[in-house]
Amino acid sequence: MKNVEIIVRLDVMLALRKMKSRDLAHAVGITEQNISLLKSGKVKGIRFETLAKICAELDCQPGDILEAVAAE
């Protein structure tokens, strides 16, 4: 089986939408620290509820935020 890892592209989407992490954190209802952890990929997972709120706020699809890439 091919090794695949999930990369979080939240920073790209934030840049495209010209939105600050603080504003997204406030809108989604999670801490800025968690947004920062999410951006850096230092989390084990993301709840569907959080993902749905982020997608709604950034007007995008989960695939725009998460990407599966082959692990080196």
Binding site: I30, N34, L37, V43, K44, G45, I46, R47, T50
Partner: peptide
């Protein structure tokens, strides 16, 4: 709970 805390 520790694992749950690692979820955002």
């Amino acid at each position: 709970a520790q694992e749950n805390r690692a979820f955002v």
